[in-house]
């Protein structure tokens, strides 16, 4: 018998709230849609592959929007593609999350000024939960962004809307500058 089994047989009952169980189940198997647009898609593939191994977080790309919880918008969204992105988003079942990966899908990236055919930010067409900056973001940043999505799911409860959960997440998150300063002081001392 394993430790877990021993623990359960000792107390004989598992106590938690429904919210926690649901959230735990949801965040432990986030299935993103395998949907690459541009350069960031290669970094997304690299994150899925051997060295970064996203599967250890239960994240594995699915080919169909109907089977996925999360949309990683990896790359430049163009005007021609925007309508397809909307359609794909609408095909995903609720609850669904959107992670905007890379500067292009955040705000147009290097194409913001003269890119006549580039959509300046995917949040003009679909709601975005987490933005990951970078051109392209390193796999570590993408994993960081996915952790944020998991935190967001943890914040959700029955009766708490997505907007409120996002607000709570923003309050909880710390300013990176403070962390850097703190680390610097530790190093100096």
């Amino acid at each position: 018998m394993g430790l877990l089994d021993a623990g359960i047989s000792k107390h004989n009952v598992v106590i938690t709230s429904v919210d926690n169980v649901l959230n735990w189940a949801r965040l432990s198997s986030l299935w993103p849609m395998g949907f690459g647009l541009a350069c960031c898609a290669i970094e997304m593939m690299a994150t899925n592959a051997s060295n970064y191994d996203l599967e250890r977080f239960g994240i594995f790309p699915r080919s169909s929007p109907r089977q996925s919880d999360l949309m990683i918008v990896a790359g430049t969204v163009t005007m021609k593609m925007a309508e397809r992105v909307i359609r794909l988003y609408e095909q995903m079942p609720e609850p669904r999350y959107v992670l905007s990966m890379g500067s292009c899908s955040n705000c147009g990236g290097p194409y913001w000024e003269h890119g006549y055919h580039v959509l300046k930010g995917v949040d003009r067409v679909i709601p975005v939960d987490v933005y990951v900056p970078g051109c392209p973001p390193r796999p570590e940043s993408l994993i960081g962004g996915l952790m944020k999505i998991q935190e967001l799911i943890r914040m959700e409860q029955i009766g708490i809307s997505r907007a409120e959960a996002l607000k709570k997440l923003a309050e909880k998150s710390s300013d990176p500058q403070q962390v850097i300063e703190r680390d610097r002081q530790v190093v100096r001392a």
Binding site: L37, A38, T78, K80, P110, H114, G115, Y116, H117, V118
Partner: peptide
């Protein structure tokens, strides 16, 4: 084509 036309030549 054209779903990733990022206007390279314009830039």
């Amino acid at each position: 084509l054209g779903y990733l036309h990022r206007c390279f030549e314009k830039h």
